[in-house]
Design a protein around this nucleic acid. Structure first.
Lengths: 144, 144
DNA sequence: CTTGAACCTATAGTAGCTAGAGCACTTAAA
DNA sequence: TTTAAGTGCTCTAGCTACTATAGGTTCAAG
């Protein structure tokens, strides 16, 4: 049985994050020691590794919840898991396309400043005027 | 003078977002009509266009705050603006690299399921075991 | 004058954590 | 055996950048 600290260091997940996952029901409630400290089994370790890996691949906690419940029922068809992964791939692809467009604009913006004063600054100028852009980069949310 | 609705539709920024920008000091407090409704000048319109465009390019509100204050002082050197844009470019590039790695893994994962049951599902299997990945995709945060 | 659209404020909710306060427990050295 | 460091506990609030809802006010058209 692992303490939360050991579990955290062995999976690379921070302690408050582990408690958070328990709180939102992604991890089952841990057993407790006599002194009320959480104790984790090998199974819990595996589950957290799964979550961590899926997070690293950009899956949302919601998607991970679904994947975990699929994983808990090994006799079900795997089409659902496949669909979740495909959806994630599609999202990654769309973010890639968007970021590529952003990169183009930012590179153009940054190449050089015409003068050395803000009044001549190409960065400020381009930001003030979208028509100076060559791509249509304003489609979806910018955090992608 | 524009009402908040007109300002929103002419810039593509939602009304609550405009009020939010005012609240956090990104937009100055708007003048009010006799009936207490916000009224915007052409200058405010320009400022919001600037903000919107920078958001579209992925700049954080914090970075935009800095860019706006630079833009308000046109006699200053533009090195600072340049640095902000370069930092944004660097971040976009790093996200691109990361997403490209994610895409590789997701594609590999999705290519096919060996069986049709979860117990044979490649998606679930790979998520359980990072050593099946060919790239080191676990570097920074996954929302990028 | 009335109706309906557009506006107002204030509060709470979203994702996915992270940080802090103020305690209790555990472990290893002195 | 004590004691100090380290680790753990709960609870609350904060982060980004909005978005949604409730309940009320004002404006413009008919």
């Amino acid at each position: 049985m692992l303490t939360i600290g050991k579990l955290g260091s062995s999976t690379g997940v921070k302690i408050p994050t582990i408690r958070y996952y328990e709180q939102i029901g992604l991890l089952p409630e841990a057993e407790r020691s006599l002194g009320n400290q959480r104790l984790y089994t090998h199974k819990a370790h595996e589950r957290l590794v799964f979550i961590r890996h899926a997070r690293d691949l950009g899956f949302s906690l919601e998607a991970i919840r679904d994947l975990l419940s699929l994983s808990d029922n090994p006799d079900q068809p795997c089409a659902a898991a496949d669909a979740i992964a495909r959806a994630q791939l599609a999202e990654v692809e769309s973010r890639l396309a968007r970021l590529a467009a952003l990169k183009t604009e930012l590179e153009r913006m940054v190449v050089q400043c015409a003068g050395d004063r803000i009044s001549d600054c190409r960065v400020i100028e381009v930001l003030s005027d979208h028509s100076q852009c060559i791509t249509d980069h304003a489609i979806e949310d910018a955090t992608s």
